[in-house]
Amino acid sequence: MLSALELEALKLSAFIAIIAVSASIIPGIIIAWIISKKNGFLASILNILVYLPLVLPPVVIGYLLLLLFSHNGVIGNFLYENFNISVNFSWKGAAIAAAVVSFPLLVRSIKLGFDTFDSKIEEAAYMNGASKIDCFFSITLPQVLPSIITGLTLAFARCLAEFGATITFVSNIPGETQTLPLALYTATQIPGTDQAALRLVLISIALAFISVAIAEILAKRANKRIMGNPN
């Protein structure tokens, strides 16, 4: 069975990933829609900004978050002064780091859905009396659902794998910010803990496998609902 420390790291990993992905859904859909449909200068800049975390070294992101969210940073100061919230050295900071690094994967996938969606169907919805907002929720969103599910899966998996930005931003505190990869890192730093490290490796693989498998099943179901074939 799992040790108390392993269980704690596993729970924390899953919790942080779920929080990070849940918080990303709505902004992810909005930004994906903007960069898919708009061609202006601002949309192009937004497009590049969204993809930056994908190519920047995670340590750069971690350090930038540290600068922004510390009590002297722009956002950190605002949160602390107004809401008495501090994200430093806490799971909240870990969730922010996970959300930032996984965001490009979420947006990319949803954008692809909007890109390939035949917007002529929207014209048919308008002619049936649907307003633009009504059409977005009743037609567009259900039609791109498979892409949203795929995006959520990729983002969730990326959150589980997050290491560099997290350790730079919120350090490695057991029970607070020590997710599975960070616990594994700790184990590899202490002599004579090879077996513990291997156990953490296996837990990581199992968690990744299960989450991707569940997501695949969901995506196939959603596809079948729309196109009649699961692929």
């Binding site: 048919a124 919805a125 002619m127 307003s131």
Partner: peptide
């Protein structure tokens, strides 16, 4: 706006809502 014009439009290529049943397509409008 198009949605307030009350025009029944049938397009050349079929533009049915594939995530709905035939009945729900009929009831959409």
């Amino acid at each position: 706006a198009p949605n307030l014009r009350k025009i029944g439009m049938v397009f050349q290529e079929q533009r049915l809502f594939s995530h709905m049943t035939v009945l729900n397509n009929l009831l959409y409008g």
